[in-house]
Write a protein that binds this DNA or RNA. Structure first.
Length: 107
DNA sequence: AACCTGACTCGCC
DNA sequence: AGGCGAGCCAGGT
């Protein structure tokens, strides 16, 4: 399985109503330093609607500014719609909605 | 085929 | 505490 596919697999495992950080996804696929690649992989999201890329945020809970597939606020709306609360206009309440243990993706 | 860049993160100054 | 550089993978030039 390629690194990208592992990224997609991990992101698909993020439960509804929760969010995960790029680093968290990276850890889930075996390489904590692939955070950057995770972002790049999602940038070229091959399966919109299937891969919940809006549930992936930065370490501090901020949504990516480059999230422009329908408007930056789009991501925030989707998350709030799932029950995720924000501490401000663009920061997810990580303490409560960050997924505790993301399942490890087997190759 | 090599080099640059990009939805990130972490460690060192 | 804030800024800077390095490391990771894939794709375009």
């Amino acid at each position: 399985m390629t690194t990208f596919e592992k990224v997609y697999a991990a992101v698909r495992l993020i439960p509804r109503g929760s969010v995960a950080t790029y680093g968290q996804v990276a850890r889930a696929i075996g390489n904590p330093r692939l955070a950057r690649v995770v972002g790049y992989a999602l940038h070229g999201n091959p399966e919109p609607g299937v891969i919940p890329c809006h549930r992936v945020v930065k370490r501090d809970g901020a949504v990516s500014s480059a999230f422009a597939f329908g408007g930056a606020n789009r991501q925030v709306e989707l998350l709030q719609n799932e029950g995720v609360e924000f501490i401000d206009a663009s920061h997810v309440d990580m303490a409560r909605f960050c997924v505790r243990a993301l399942p490890y993706v087997v190759e």
